[in-house]
Nucleic acid binder design. Structure first.
Lengths: 105, 105
DNA sequence: ACTTTGTGAAACCAAAAGGTTGCATATATT
DNA sequence: AATATATGCAACCTTTTGGTTTCACAAAGT
């Protein structure tokens, strides 16, 4: 089972779960109410996110509140970061074009 | 066929292709030399990346040089960005702990 | 004690993913 | 003209994915 964060965020339901618990820790039941799929399907998504160490559990009685571990999210940011200069260079080039147009006026 | 950039970067071979062509535009054949899979398998990955508008083609005779379109990569950065404050807050809290330890000395 | 509630795990299924081999076609080379 | 090269597409196969339904079990409520 390949199980890394990139595979974890590939699924739109899982990205939605991540966004939801980033705002506020939630139980599986509470999460499931936000989706059209079954509670068990949500549970399977949680399991995958958990296996990627994206979650932290806080058990209160029979309820389990799932929190997001933002540190793990950083891995995605770290991978994308080296490409930033590429799209920003492009932006700067456009910037240059616009400045040249200004000067011509 | 769900085909968005998150699904595109979920596969490690495709992430490797992205990294390779970010450095330098390459033909499918040249790319395939970097992998253990067949040229056709690489072609299928290219197709998926292309469908996500991650690539730009430059045809020279019978060769096709694939370039990365960095703008599309920005979509990932944009999604991850709102979470940044979460992991940076955490870092700052750790920072605070370390400072407090210093003061106690 | 009995029932309800919150959760996870197992068995199953259809569709998608990721690979293969073989073929078609356009462009270069001889 | 004949051959070699670069590429993409189709058919096929196995494994993975994402869903379902059913069951088990612990904790809370009555």
């Amino acid at each position: 089972m390949r199980r890394d964060i990139f595979q974890a965020i590939a699924d739109p339901s899982r990205r939605a779960i991540i966004t939801l618990i980033a705002i506020q820790a939630m139980t599986p039941n509470a999460l499931a109410e936000h989706f059209d799929i079954s509670r068990q399907a949500v549970s399977k998504h949680i399991r995958i996110l958990d296996e990627c160490r994206l979650l932290k559990k806080e058990q209160l009685g029979r309820e389990i509140y799932y929190h997001l571990d933002p540190q793990k999210m950083k891995e995605v940011a770290d991978w994308i970061e080296p490409f930033r200069e590429l799209w920003e260079v492009k932006f700067n080039q456009l910037d240059q074009v616009l400045q040249n147009l200004k000067k011509k006026k």
